[in-house]
């Protein structure tokens, strides 16, 4: 297995508090990895380091497709290849849905307006909201907004998609529509790293589940193993608390 995303000894502190205590992780091309764990375990911070939304300590190393995630030109290259979907959608409120999707291809890749618009409409079709293209984000439901956010990230044709708790801010009845889009995406062979509390999604879609606690990877493996037959007491406690309520 050649690693597409490779993380070595990743350390990160907020002040004196060490959130990530030396993470090593390799993700293969096309792999779908779900990261689970209690809040404050560092899982969101971990994926935010992959495109360097969070700066990390010296001595840590992250490579995406061989390029070290540092700064300047190398970072720009990585960010163009890595798509991200946020818990709070973060759509641009002053742009229409279509313009939200067009902006990065136009400004980063120099795609023509017509081509970008065509691509946007194709992506909106794919996430099932083609009819909303000319609306502004505030007029969409949470589930629709998150699907636009996924389409916006896909417009850059990323090699890797990062999902930071993509369904946590949604009303329960909208979780399914977003997970369906992600499930389709997983089938297309995009590499996905998903921080989630959706155990059903993790067990059905993930190639590998990672359980994190207190800034460390405690346990990882195929979902059947980690979710159904966890070896570590901390994993068992967490799953017990999540599943039996």
């Amino acid at each position: 297995m050649t690693a597409f995303v490779s993380i070595r000894n990743l350390r990160k502190s907020f002040g004196t508090f060490e959130v990530l205590k030396g993470i090593d992780l390799d993700v293969a091309k096309g792999e779908v990895v779900c990261i689970i764990g209690p809040s404050g375990s560092g899982k969101s911070t971990l994926i935010r380091c992959i495109n360097r939304l969070e700066p990390f300590s010296a001595g840590s190393e992250i490579r995406v497709d061989g390029t070290a995630v540092t700064s300047g030109r190398a970072l720009a290259k990585v960010r163009a290849e890595v798509g991200m979907v946020f818990q709070s959608f973060n759509l641009f409120p002053h742009l229409t849905v279509r313009e939200n999707i067009m902006i990065a291809p136009r400004r980063v890749r120099g795609t023509s307006r017509a081509d970008a618009a065509r691509q946007a409409d194709r992506l909106l079709e794919r996430v099932g909201i083609a009819s909303q293209a000319d609306k502004y984000p505030e007029h969409l439901s949470g589930g629709q907004q998150q699907r636009v956010a996924i389409a916006r990230a896909l417009a850059m044709e990323p090699q890797v998609m990062l999902f930071d708790e993509p369904t946590s801010a949604l009303d329960p009845e909208m979780v399914g529509e977003v997970l369906d889009v992600m499930r389709d995406l997983a089938r297309t062979g995009v590499t996905m790293i998903v921080v989630t509390h959706e155990m059903g999604f993790a067990s059905q879609v993930a190639d590998r589940v990672i359980f994190m606690d207190a800034g460390q990877i405690i346990e990882q493996g195929p979902p059947a193993q980690v979710l159904s037959n966890p070896q570590e007491p901390r994993t068992r406690n967490f799953l017990g608390a999540v599943l039996n309520h």
Partner: peptide, 27 residues
């Protein structure tokens, strides 16, 4: 302007100048 707007722009690969001109200043 909420921090998420800066983060979403950065994650999409917009450089700081474009981020200001297209996303932050219009808002």
């Amino acid at each position: 302007i909420p921090k998420g707007q800066f983060e979403a722009s950065a994650a999409l690969g917009l450089n700081p100048l474009r981020m200001m001109a297209d996303i932050i200043l219009p808002q």
